[in-house]
Design a binder for these strands. Structure first.
Length: 207
DNA sequence: TATTCGATGTGCT
DNA sequence: GCACATCGAATAC
């Protein structure tokens, strides 16, 4: 069954960042780890839009960290945060733009027991990957993947095996102190694997 | 070289 | 709802 997951091509990421953020919802993140297959449906994303966006790491000049953001769409951007955690992004648009989509939450599909082991004590399956750093722990996403390509055979995004319709909600982004006003967070409405946050109630349905 | 602080998660109240 | 662990990157000096 794992053979059926196939990497989306670069062209998927070489588009407007907001479009990529929306279109990643419902897609499946697939990672092969030690002969196992980890897979989960992307249910929550945020867009970070280069030098127009004060919350984006590429807002200021190019630094050692933000250099990755200026690579071509489809590049993996993993960064270390709060002394303990990682966040996983996929760079979008053409080279030099400094744009990316943060993957904030996933609905586990395959390899769930393995993810549980990676997460230590979690109360229930909904706590497994409902947060950007939680899913990094579950999927073993660390800084060694930074600058790598998301269209390879061992770590990629695929179309789902069975398409389901869903509504997309849009809200403000979580956990930032600048660029707060932008409605750049997207999630699958009423999906229980989405991060629980007050912004969920203040969200709008995307037409 | 020193200082600040963060795209978070966890645990306790 | 709130405090805080934890440390590297960015910025200040």
């Amino acid at each position: 069954m794992s053979k059926l997951y196939k990497p989306l091509k670069h062209s998927f990421y070489l588009r407007d960042t907001l479009d990529v953020a929306k279109n990643l919802l419902g897609k499946v993140l697939v990672k092969k780890v030690k002969n196992r297959l980890l897979a989960g449906k992307i249910v929550e994303t945020e867009a970070y839009i280069g030098d127009h966006d004060p919350a984006c790491h590429a807002y200021r000049k190019i630094t050692k960290r933000s250099r990755t953001l200026y690579q071509i769409g489809g590049t993996i951007y993993v960064y270390f945060v709060y002394g303990n955690y990682y966040c996983f992004n996929i760079v979008t648009e053409e080279e030099g733009r400094g744009c990316a989509v943060l993957i904030r939450a996933i609905e586990p599909l395959e390899g769930i027991e393995y993810m549980k082991d990676n997460r230590g004590s979690v109360k229930n399956i909904y706590e497994l990957t409902n947060g950007p750093s939680k899913l990094c722990l579950a999927f073993e996403i660390e800084s060694d993947l930074n600058d790598k390509d998301i269209t390879g055979s061992s770590f990629f995004v695929s179309n789902p095996l069975t398409e389901k319709k869903f509504d997309i909600a849009v809200s403000k982004r979580i956990g930032i102190n600048v660029g707060k006003e932008f409605m750049y967070r997207f999630f699958i409405k009423d999906n229980p694997f989405v991060t629980r946050h007050k912004f969920n109630k203040e969200s709008f349905l995307l037409k």
